[in-house]
Design a protein around this nucleic acid. Structure first.
Length: 508
RNA sequence: CGGGGCGUAGCGCAGCCUGGUAGCGCAUCUGCUUUGGGAGCAGAGGGUCGGGAGUUCAAAUCUCCCCGCCCCGACCA
């Protein structure tokens, strides 16, 4: 912020600075950039057009990746017979506490006025609103899969689900949320484990290439794994407060559900065998990750590859004659850019100063602003300003501006967007590296964890040590990373033998 | 479910302690002048003060009860 001599009162148009109150900053961004709003129902949110556009773009990219790896989309019902939840013991235990249950199918007049569920309409068996779809899907799998020729079965569904969480936060944890859940069945464990890793790879690639968010791939400890899974793998991203955010998971379900739901096939020899299954998902939480990874005190920052609007054109003029010329040029620039496949908005609202528009579009995270004034019209150019610098600023420069010729605008803009996409990833990666530490001393860890970050430390694999860390520091093991050197050492907590370092952090 | 905070105009808040029937900024609408980093002036509209009960001649203000929301923690993607 470069305004005036010590503004004592904060400009109420500004959002809460990150450094002052991170969680308020996050909320301000989501609300003010109009990504979402609180709904009348506690814990639920309305995803507004700007937020939904992000979801749609995210969905489009991921869906393409799922299809390219052989998966097909399907849709299973929202309602699950209550008894299904109790078929896999660990699974029930994991979800029982957070299920919404439908018990009636009709409203009737209440004695004291208004309406209430009609007591005569009570369901024989209550229905659970899906907290995830393993159970209902696998009941169907059991019907569909008979032969090894039916395998692998590779399905995905885009859906909403409900988990009655105690505490919610916009996008990061809401009672109802949108997600995607892939469910597959295979003949061998080797094959299903490959699927688990392949899909985790898809998530990691998506996070890094589209969202510009670097992630660690790894496996969860037993205490953190999905209820009912043999193993849970995940991608973990670091937010700007140094906390970790689990951004996607891929589970090796083994034969646990196959046994509970009788998902069997006959192999080549005619033997009946249980399938090996996987499930994997990402949710609207990714939008929270996007916000917390890239945004700043000016507002939202959207990576170009996920932006619906790549550039906004702000016209600048003094008088009617100038205005006509500028708007003419702006309109034709917009048409040219749109013709090149770019999302462009021309902000020709009257009575708002250019400066106001700059601030507003920065708040909304549009990657590039194009300014066109009388001088630019004369010169056949426009001024491009990326939402965040794609290189170091020169001395005295407040923000990076460059002059583009109108003739070559589509190419220059595309190249600027590419630079921006890369710059965001590089910046996020640099941030993560600067906030990642190797540590072997538990006392030092307890002290340093306060300032956030990822701590690579040896762990013996014991649940007791893990629990002790959680109790004493609120940090958890985010994952045991796949792509890390297998350096043996001594557990930071108990000194026991450890084959490699695990990543400890406080998490969302 | 614990701890904290908040409910007054669309948004952000003041007024409450010390009762007298509601105010400021932003936004909105109208008009004129403006427009290269959050424009200016003039005018206008907009409120059952979260709900209920009580005290009082009189309640946004005092008392009691209820409701809702946000933040922090335990549970989780």
């Amino acid at each position: 912020m470069e305004e005036g001599p010590m503004a004592k009162e904060r400009d109420e148009r500004a959002i809460t600075p990150r450094g002052e109150d991170y969680s308020q900053w996050y909320q301000d961004i989501v609300l003010r950039a109009e990504l979402a709003d609180y709904s009348p129902v506690k814990g639920c949110m309305v995803i507004r057009p700007a937020g939904y556009a992000l979801w749609e773009n995210l969905q489009k990219a991921l869906d393409g990746m799922f299809k390219a790896t052989g998966h097909a989309n399907a849709y299973f019902p929202l309602f699950i017979p209550m008894s299904f939840l109790s078929k896999e013991a660990e699974h029930v235990e994991g979800f029982a506490k957070e299920c919404a249950v439908v018990t009636h199918h009709r409203l009737g007049a209440a004695p004291e006025g208004g309406v209430r569920p009609d007591p005569a309409s009570a369901l024989e068996e209550p229905l659970v609103v899906r907290p995830t779809s393993e159970t209902i899907m696998y009941a169907m799998f059991s019907k569909w899969i008979k032969s090894y020729r039916d395998l692998p079965l590779l399905l995905n569904q885009w859906a909403n689900i409900v988990r009655w969480e105690m505490r919610t936060r916009l996008f990061l944890r809401t009672t109802e949320f949108l997600w995607q859940e892939g469910h597959t069945a295979h003949t061998t464990h080797e094959e299903s484990w490959k699927e688990v890793l392949d899909m985790l790879g898809v998530y990691a690639r998506f996070a890094e290439e589209w969202m510009a968010v670097p992630v660690l791939k790894g496996v969860k400890t037993d205490s953190e794994k999905f209820a009912g899974a043999l193993k849970t793998t995940c991608i973990e991203a670091m937010m700007q407060d140094g906390k970790a955010l689990q951004s996607g998971t891929s589970h090796d379900l083994g034969q646990n559900f196959a046994k509970a739901f009788d998902v069997k096939f006959q192999d080549e020899k005619g033997e009946w065998r249980y399938c090996w299954q996987t499930s994997w998902g990402v949710s609207t939480r990714l939008i929270g990750a996007l916000v917390m990874a890239h945004s700043d005190d000016q507002g939202l920052v959207i990576p170009p590859k996920l932006a619906a609007t790549h550039a906004v054109i702000v016209p600048i003029y003094r008088d009617d004659a100038g205005k006509a010329k500028v708007l003419d040029t702006a309109r034709s620039l917009k048409a040219t850019l749109a013709g090149a496949g770019l999302g462009v908005v021309l902000d020709d609202r009257e009575n708002l100063s250019p400066g106001f528009k700059y601030n507003e579009w920065e708040l909304k995270g549009v990657p590039v602003r194009l300014e066109i004034g009388p001088r630019d019209v004369e010169a056949g150019s426009c001024v491009a300003v990326p939402r965040v610098p794609t290189r170091g600023l020169r001395d005295g420069e407040k923000r990076q501006k460059e002059t583009l010729s109108l003739a070559g605008a589509p190419e220059s803009l595309k190249s600027l967007l590419d630079d921006l996409q890369r710059a965001l990833f590089d910046r996020a990666l640099k941030f993560r590296e600067e906030h990642s530490y190797k540590t072997d001393d538990y006392a030092a860890f307890r002290r340093d964890i306060e300032k956030g970050g990822f701590f690579w430390a040896h762990w013996c694999g014991g649940a007791a040590c893990e629990e002790k860390v959680k109790e004493e520091t609120k940090a958890t093991i985010r994952c045991i990373p796949f792509d890390a050197e297998k350096e043996a050492g001594a557990c930071m907590i108990c000194g026991g033998a450890s084959p490699q370092r695990a990543v400890f952090a406080r998490a969302y």
